[in-house]
């Protein structure tokens, strides 16, 4: 499968951009119209975290999808989706630091060490930072082969993200279970290909 480069760049990419921005627009509109429920802060915090994880999983879906459909262009979507993951994860973290902790750093520090799910969320975010920083074409060229190795950090990031979500849920683990299953499938597929000695497309 293949689209004309102009169709891909001028139509598909902008549509995807707007789709990935939609949760943000949803939240702003909801704040404006006061439709986020009785606890809007919690709603915003959770929605941002949900989308960070969902978009990260979708990003990881690109490579197997590319092979399955033989659609090489899909690789070109990785940067945008990866950066959207980082964008939602950053806002999620900012919300936590501001609304949950009031920017009280000592209280954040103790929260990280007292509560494993916070530690896991923070760690997942730390893994994402170098990926975002080295996402430019220049950095890619500069790092060469090492870029690929560095970007394998996306695997621990998604694992830590899913565990973070799993541990914060009180009783209904349906949604984190779905994400965990998807993560397992996506990572197993890569491991299997790696073991067979195929060149990894990351």
């Amino acid at each position: 499968m293949q689209l004309k480069a102009t169709t891909f760049n001028n139509i598909l990419k902008p549509i995807l951009f707007l789709l990935l921005l939609a949760p943000t627009i949803w939240l702003i509109a909801g704040l404006w119209l006061n439709t986020l429920g009785a606890n809007p802060i919690e709603y915003i915090l959770h929605t941002l975290g949900d989308w960070a994880l969902r978009i990260l999983l979708l990003t990881l879906l690109l490579s197997p999808l590319r092979r399955l459909l033989n659609w090489i262009q899909l690789v070109q979507l990785r940067r945008m989706m990866g950066l959207f993951t980082f964008y939602y994860a950053s806002l999620h973290l900012l919300c936590y630091l501001w609304f949950e902790q009031g920017f009280n750093l000592s209280s954040v520090y103790s929260d990280v060490w007292d509560r494993p799910f916070i530690l896991f969320g923070m760690t997942a975010f730390l893994f994402l930072i170098p990926l975002a920083i080295t996402s430019t074409r220049n950095k890619m060229r500069q790092l060469g082969r090492r870029w690929k190795v560095l970007h394998m950090l996306v695997y621990p990031a998604v694992i830590f993200g899913v565990v973070h979500f799993w541990w914060l849920v009180k009783a209904d683990t349906t949604e984190p279970l779905i994400y965990a299953l998807l993560t397992f499938i996506l990572l197993t597929e890569r491991l299997w290909r790696f073991k067979r000695g195929e060149k990894s497309g990351a």
Partner: peptide, 19 residues
């Protein structure tokens, strides 16, 4: 006495912004 997974030292009163 914190819950094992979250602190109990603060709360968000519904309708309020900060804890």
């Amino acid at each position: 006495v914190p819950h094992p997974r979250w602190s109990q030292s603060k709360e968000r009163r519904i309708g309020e912004f900060m804890k």
